[in-house]
Design a protein around this nucleic acid. Structure first.
Lengths: 354, 354
DNA sequence: CTGAAAGCGCTTACAG
DNA sequence: CTGAAAGCGCTTACAG
């Protein structure tokens, strides 16, 4: 079928181990036979069998990436960034999509072990990994979610602070009844962003109403229907902190259908700062995650750990928290009687500056 | 390091070939030893080494997916659909992003060969594959772009018809000066969609102006700057057929900045029908590609070819062309004096119905 | 510099 | 039903 080093060796009339040495730039071959081997290999259309090589070298130059989805631009940007960084270091990517399904996540983790990837980058959608990861000799770096007992490094935006910044902004704008429309309850982001939400209230000495806290899924349709639900129960809500940008788009869609103006009538803040959020027609105020940096940092961290492991160096796991930023746009604006500076940078024309 | 079948065999005191048979549900082991093997394997935390297995079975249960990017929702939706279908058939995915770079594309193709993937799904960003694919014994199914000499199956939306539908719609709406702001010139989609553009003019007996044809990249920023360029050269242009939705978003952004109303002042039609296009704030008229079906069809076709190859069945390559659909929204509308039915379904309130 | 051998972890005919 | 052997395609000490 395919050409092997034995085929090449037979053709030239030398031992196949010399072919291997020649092809891998190892010492121990005369430059003349080396040249001949390379020439013949090209002529015969030879390319190495990575599995055979991996079997003896015990590395695959492949890293597994396990994320909940790829449709949300946050994750496609993360994946792009990871792939780029990995490729620069001649690693390839195995992509697994858990679809926010903890069971599927565990199955994939198993597959990645069997595929003998050199390392894993993952965003767990629950904490089920806690037990599983015990049996892991493969380096893993996590994004966002990580179990309490931290056995592996992970990188995340500071979700608590992000939630705090978003809700603080809404309160400073002068919105009075601020709801939280969060994503999946068993995800760490749901809880951390809610903690931020609470702290913003605490800081102002206001108590928040737990009846204004909703949860669903990190999808647009979920944002849409939760907003509908919220409004039919609490007509006087005048601001929403959404679990992420995609959900916020669903919220905006509902408001649009109802003829409710975002910003002026109801303030909306998202999370992630996906590209679409900055489109002038959308103008979604949101919390920025430096997702491209996150991808690079995670990948570099993982590659370091892979190298360290190969050299039998064991370093304690790292925890890297990145700063979120408030991106004020047109879905929030200062309201009559607002007391604080809103930090607004991209003002809408009708906005009141004090 | 890891547990192997030899470790298990040694522990139980049997030959490792029996362990293999037991673990793979092959006949030739007593049910009692089979049970013991499975139990012991679990206790020892055994999982098979896929590379060793692949080496002898000559399959990897992995398919390579080589696409230009993943940020454009069209491609993340395609990837999602491919991954789902592949997983249902217990295949995993190797993801490669060429970044619209023909050189990188060729390198990746090489990598995929070395990784011994069982098959490849690819969207080529140029026709360079024409030579390369000669040396291919791996089944490949293409999306969109394919070389003239068709040696492999491929699946595509009918881009010519799509271009035709979009521009026909603009002309029927009554727009007079319709520009084409296309993507990468060396991509097949650029050319096919332009062919559709031309045919729509021909059908009406109008000649089109080649000075209104622009090309750039399939990104938002490119749409933005090409629109700027177009407008500074031809102020009287009143409609744009964009190379894809992402470019159309850039066009809309520019119009928005200039205070030009899409639809009323300048008609805009995109291509792809990515989710965002249907947001009420965007309301982008576009050509739908049934991208989820495309992903399923491509993957199934590839899996069939992989099976056929294993059974030494050789079938001629297939060419599957899917129907595009016009999705009329608010970035186009019938203008005073328009002669034909526009087929508009989601009318904007100001729209004139005749 | 070159060849012969062992071995990576598995599967699969082949004997018994 | 079980064991011993060959082999998948490669790398890498070990002799010469």
């Amino acid at each position: 079928m395919s050409v092997t080093i034995k085929d090449i060796a037979r053709k030239i009339g030398i031992n196949f181990s010399s072919v291997s040495r020649a092809l891998n730039n190892k010492p121990g071959v005369s430059s003349s036979t080396r040249a001949l081997v390379i020439k013949t290999a090209n002529e015969m259309g030879y390319y190495p069998n990575i599995h055979a090589r991996g079997l003896v070298r015990k590395e695959t130059r492949t890293i597994g990436v396990l994320i909940p989805e790829i449709i949300n631009p946050l994750f496609s940007e993360l994946a792009t960034s990871i792939i780029e960084t990995a490729n620069e270091n001649s690693y390839d990517i195995f992509l697994c999509i858990s679809n926010w399904n903890p069971k599927k996540e565990r199955e994939y983790l198993q597959t990645l072990k069997e595929k003998r990837v050199d390392g894993i980058i993952m965003k767990s959608c629950d904490d089920s990994l806690e037990k599983l990861s015990d049996s892991f000799s493969i380096p893993i770096v996590g994004y966002e979610t990580w179990p309490k007992e931290q056995k592996h490094s992970f990188v995340s935006t500071d979700n608590i602070k992000g939630g705090f910044l978003g809700v603080q902004h809404l309160l400073e704008c002068g919105y009075a009844k601020v709801a939280y429309i969060g994503g999946v309850t068993y995800s760490s982001t749901y809880n951390e962003r809610m903690t931020g939400y609470r702290r913003a209230f605490e800081q102002r000495g206001i108590s928040f109403e737990s009846s204004l806290i909703y949860s669903g899924e990190y999808h647009m349709n979920s944002g849409y229907s939760l907003m509908k639900e919220l409004f039919s129960a609490h007509r006087n809500v005048d601001a929403v902190f959404a679990g992420n940008d995609v959900m916020a788009l669903g919220v905006l869609r509902y408001l649009n259908e109802q003829g409710i103006r975002p910003g002026t009538d109801v303030g909306v803040v998202g999370f992630d700062n996906i590209q679409i959020a900055s489109l002038p027609q959308i103008g979604l105020t949101t919390i920025n995650q430096p997702i491209f940096s996150i991808g690079r940092i995670i990948t570099r961290l993982l590659l370091e750990e892979i190298e360290n492991k190969a050299m039998h160096i064991h370093l304690p796991p790292q925890k890297i928290l990145l700063e979120p930023d408030l991106m004020p746009r047109t879905t929030t604006c200062a309201r009559p009687g607002a007391v604080h500076d809103t930090g607004q940078q991209e003002n809408r024309s009708e906005m009141m500056v004090q």
